[in-house]
Design a protein around this nucleic acid. Structure first.
Lengths: 240, 240
DNA sequence: CGGATAATTGATAAGACTCAATACGCGTGG
DNA sequence: CCACGCGTATTGAGTCTTATCAATTATCCG
């Protein structure tokens, strides 16, 4: 199973999953899979910036829940390229259930604190509890949708559109501080590798947004979204 | 549930997803989900080229299995852009189980013959049969992997690399006729919208492959792969 | 055969990449 | 406390890939 991400699955089980386009996430009581886990505290582990949490191809033996910090899921190629599939935030889970080996490398973007649970425990849960399985499926489906949206972004959007889509997605996932403040824990390079662009293009696009008065850049790791509507218009992200 | 695609899970059979998970995914009898369905004949329905099978956003009431032909799953945007998430071939299934509405529009690439089953029947199966659920999960996982590969393609690869990756993927999925012959039922525009390129770029890249003696183009809808190794080298598709 | 659609090829331009040169931030150590 | 050095970010200049526009050819189908 691909990275589990509770944020994505926070939809009531009676609600159709498609009601939650990424960004419109209905709140849900922590139940099912994550609920059971969160009831237990789990062992803790911390990582420094750029530490590897686990590597692509290595056997899965734990499921993690992020307590603090940001994690990137990525792939590295022989020729030095890197592709970042997703960023995971506090509350998100990461692990791989029905795969022997990890599909991605997980790395700490900043200081990261994780709780982890042995894989066997997850397996037991899954076997014994139907609601856990249901939760799982919803998880899977919403993750799939998120990846589809990203596919659309990469296939159809220009640099600036991609960046705007990304910022809006981050905002809707709670990467935001107070009000318009958006925490950009990941570096420019990370964003570039996530959006299939170069670092320089990210910088230039950000500068354009700044010059247009759409965002302010108080410092490297924070962004003030002055005009969300303009961002939305620029992203043109809404398929259909 | 996203498009079900038996071909993907069959292709992964050398690396059985479920074998290693005694509890989570009990070894499924070869049939599982599709097996049960195929035992029943199902009603039939045929579509002409470019017919819409179902539309994005419409309620899901049937699950389809492709008897013959090729189906494309796509999204249309306001500004006339189109993104093709995937092509489905005979044997593949399409439908959405735990979604109220379709995530994609499904269209017939050529003449398509489908068997279909009411959604309620699928739901019952899913609720009552653990092996069906297992099969489902495997399905999901392999689909997820396929989409991840595609994401990598779109994020990191050049035009020619994308095309080579695509041809190889098609080949490995059995879109192939005898030996080196590859059936390209989809048009150039379809390929372009799948790979995030323009029609002209597809043509030019194909011409380059032809001029390099790597492929032959006997006619629009067939390709002879003269040098698969060269294709593989050009695709550079292997992450890590 | 003829008209429509799709594919191919050519010419040009725009967008994004690369290379290169600062500037900034931050931690370290004098 | 400041100077230094390293990594990252930013900005500029030039190039290259790919998109766009246009014209021609091929293919399909009635």
């Amino acid at each position: 199973m691909i990275a589990l991400n509770t944020k994505y699955s926070q939809a009531k089980s009676e609600q159709p999953i498609d009601a939650q386009r990424p960004g419109l996430l209905s709140p849900a009581p922590a139940q099912g899979f994550e609920g059971v886990l969160q009831a237990q505290r789990g062992a803790r582990q911390v990582f420094e910036r750029n530490d590897t949490i686990f590597s692509e191809g290595h056997p899965v033996d734990r499921i993690y829940r992020i307590i603090a910090g940001t994690v990137r899921l990525c792939r590295h190629t022989q020729n030095g390229k890197r592709y970042i599939a997703d960023f995971l935030l506090p509350g998100d889970m990461l692990g791989f259930i029905d795969q022997n080996d990890h599909l991605f490398t997980a790395e700490a973007v900043d200081y990261v604190s994780l709780a982890y649970y042995p894989r066997s425990q997850i397996t037991r849960l899954f076997d014994s509890d139907a609601s856990v399985r249901t939760h799982f499926l919803m998880h899977f489906a919403s993750r799939m949708m998120a990846f589809q949206d990203h596919l659309f972004t990469l296939a159809c959007q220009s640099a600036k559109e991609r960046l705007c889509s990304f910022l809006l997605r981050l905002r809707s996932r709670g990467g935001t501080g107070a009000g318009q403040l958006l925490n950009l824990s990941m570096g420019r390079r990370d964003i570039a590798d996530h959006l299939g662009l170069s670092v320089e293009t990210i910088c230039r696009s950000l500068a354009q947004l700044r010059d247009a008065g759409i965002v302010e850049i108080p410092n490297i790791h924070q962004l003030v979204l002055k005009d969300v509507e303009a961002l939305r218009a620029l992203s043109e992200a809404t398929a259909e």
